[in-house]
Amino acid sequence: MPSNLPEVIGMQPNQFNVDVANKLKVVSLVSVGKHPQSGRMRRADQDSRAVELGLKLTGDNHSGESLTVLHAGDPSEPSLRSYAGMGLKSVRVLQLDPAADAILPLGQHLQQCGADIVLTGVRAESGESSGMVPYQLAEKLGWPIVPRVADIVSVKGGVAEVLQALPRGQRRSVMVRLPFIASVDSAAPEARQSAFGPASRALMDIEVVSASVDDVRQAWEEAAARKRPKRLKVVKAKTAAERFKAATAKSQGDGGKVMKNESAAEQAQAIFDLLKEEGVLR
C-alpha cells in the first residue's frame, strides 16, 4: 500500500483536500423515501447521505454553490424540501409523469450540465427499488460507476480516491477518473439534520420534461410484502435410528483440539497459526 494513504480510517470525519473544488461540479440525485416502519414519505436515507457527501465535497461555506440536488418526478412532493433543509438554496426538479421512465431525461440533463461527480443512493426506498438508475446512467453516459461508496477521500488532478464499503465494515480504496457516478452506501457519514425554515424558503427550480411511459411496469402487480417462509431444517433420514440421531445430536458437540500441558509459547503459536490460516491477521 502506498504511504500517502491514511493508515487508519475511523469514524471521525477526515480532512478533505480538493485542489479543484472551485471547479468541481457535483450532482446528487435524490428520490422520495419511505419510512420502513410508518410508511410515511421522508427524505431517503442513502440519498440524504449522498447530499451530505456532496456538501462535504463542495465545501459548506459556499452553501452548496456547485452542488446540484436533482430530482426527477413530482415537484410538489413535500419531502423534497427536507433535502433543501440541509442548507441548499434550491432543488432542481425535472417534472415528469409519475409513470414515466426517468433515465433518458436524467441522462440528458447530466450531460448538459457537465457534472463531474454524480452521487445517488444504492437503492430507492419506494417504487421498484432495483438500484439500476446509476448503472443505466453510467451505461448511457459511458462513465465509470463506483458502487457502495462510503467516502470520497480526495479529488486531485481529475482523479478521485474513493473508499468503497465492503461487508463486515471493511473499506477498499479505488481510484477513478472524473467524471464518474457513485452510489452512496449506508456506511457513508450520516446526513445532517434538516431545518424547517430554510427548507420552506428554498427554491424549487422546476423544468418540465417529457419522457416515455414505462410500459413494462404497467403490467406488474404490487402488494404489501408477504412474510417469507422460514426455511426449516429438513432431516432426510431413512430409518428411525437416523431420525433419532438427527433429533438428539448436539450441533456443536464435536469438540476441537485441546492443548493442556504445552508451554504458553507453544499454545500461543497454535492460536497464532489458526488466526493466520483463517486469514483474519492482515
Binding site: 500500500m1 491514511p6 480510517i9 475511523g10 465494515g169 471493511q170 477498499r172 480504496s173 477513478v176
Partner: peptide, 23 residues
C-alpha cells in the same frame, strides 16, 4: 479499467460494529 483497485484499507477494528465484526 477505469476503476483502479488500490486494495483494502486498514480500518479501526473498534469502529466496526460488534454484530458485523469478522474477528
Amino acid at each position: 479499467a477505469q476503476l483502479q483497485d488500490r486494495g483494502q484499507v486498514a480500518v479501526d477494528p473498534n469502529a466496526i460494529s460488534l454484530a458485523e465484526a469478522e474477528f
